[in-house]
Computed example of a mutant assay.
Amino acid sequence: MEILFIRHSEPDYSMLDKATHPEAYTGFGRDLVPLTARGRTLAQQAAQSPLLDDVDTVISSSITRALQTATYLICNRQLDLLVEPFFHEWRPDLDGLNYTEVELGLAYRLFMENDGALVENSPVRYETGQAIKTRTLKALQKYKAYDKVAIVAHGMLIRQFVPMETIDYCQMIPYSIDLETIEIEDESYR
């Protein structure tokens, strides 16, 4: 299978700063924000890329910034948009403790310093790089019938397949994978 990984466009978190009850937008609540004006422009520009010309379908993370980006990508093309909840963002707080910005920063730093591994006695519990890759591969199994898909997702997810330190908003990264040779033990994500 050919995959065109596409990182979502630029999200607008500024509206959370103005929210009446900003505590309602912690954790996954932060994933409800739309794109910035610049983010919408970047997505519109990305939609013109010839890399999308031979894509069979676009599959998006269910998180708002990815969905809105994907909508721009299919706008002038005869492509279906499929939503895949398991292509979501990295989970820095596995226990749902509503980590503070300091704890979220610590989780990110530890993830990066330990190549995605969770070290023993870590003060924070986060989703490992291997867990991200496994959940993505499990979800990807149901799309095996497609020759080439575009996946609109998140930098942390994409980096588990493509070793890049930085992935820009709307950056497109071609990737090949043979799903027939991948063994996945846990069937719970299918």
Rank of each mutant, 00 (worst) to 15 (best):
M1Q: 03
E2R: 15
I3E: 06
L4P: 02
L4Y: 09
I6P: 02
R7T: 10
R7Q: 12
H8S: 06
S9P: 06
M15W: 15
L16R: 05
L16W: 07
L16K: 03
D17K: 13
P22N: 03
A24E: 12
G27M: 11
G29F: 08
R30G: 12
D31V: 11
D31I: 12
V33A: 11
P34M: 10
L35C: 03
T36C: 04
T36Y: 03
A37S: 13
A37M: 08
G39K: 08
R40I: 06
T41G: 13
A43L: 01
A46V: 02
A47H: 00
S49Q: 00
S49K: 04
S49Y: 03
L52V: 02
D56Q: 05
V58K: 06
V58F: 00
S61V: 05
S62Y: 07
I63F: 14
I63Q: 15
I63Y: 15
T64N: 15
R65G: 08
A66V: 06
Q68K: 10
Q68V: 14
Q68L: 11
T69V: 10
A70N: 07
L73K: 01
L73T: 03
I74C: 00
C75T: 07
N76Y: 07
N76I: 06
N76S: 01
Q78G: 12
Q78L: 13
Q78F: 14
L79P: 00
D80A: 15
L81P: 08
L81M: 07
V83K: 08
E84A: 01
R91D: 13
P92R: 06
P92K: 08
L94D: 05
D95T: 08
Y99C: 04
T100E: 01
E103W: 00
L104M: 09
G105Q: 05
R109V: 07
R109N: 13
F111T: 04
F111N: 04
E113Q: 09
E113N: 02
N114Q: 14
D115Y: 14
G116F: 05
G116W: 05
A117H: 08
S122R: 09
P123L: 01
R125K: 11
R125V: 13
R125Q: 12
E127F: 08
T128H: 11
G129K: 00
G129D: 09
L137I: 04
L137P: 03
L140A: 08
K142I: 11
Y143T: 01
Y143V: 02
A145L: 14
A145Y: 11
Y146R: 02
Y146D: 00
D147H: 14
V152I: 10
A153R: 06
M156V: 12
I158G: 07
I158E: 02
P163N: 06
M164W: 05
M164I: 12
E165G: 15
E165L: 11
E165H: 13
T166S: 14
C170F: 01
C170A: 04
C170S: 00
C170E: 05
M172T: 00
I173Y: 02
P174N: 03
Y175I: 08
S176A: 12
I177L: 02
E180V: 07
E180K: 13
I182L: 10
I182N: 07
E183D: 14
E183P: 03
D186E: 14
D186A: 07
D186Q: 13
E187V: 00
E187H: 07
Y189Q: 11
R190H: 09
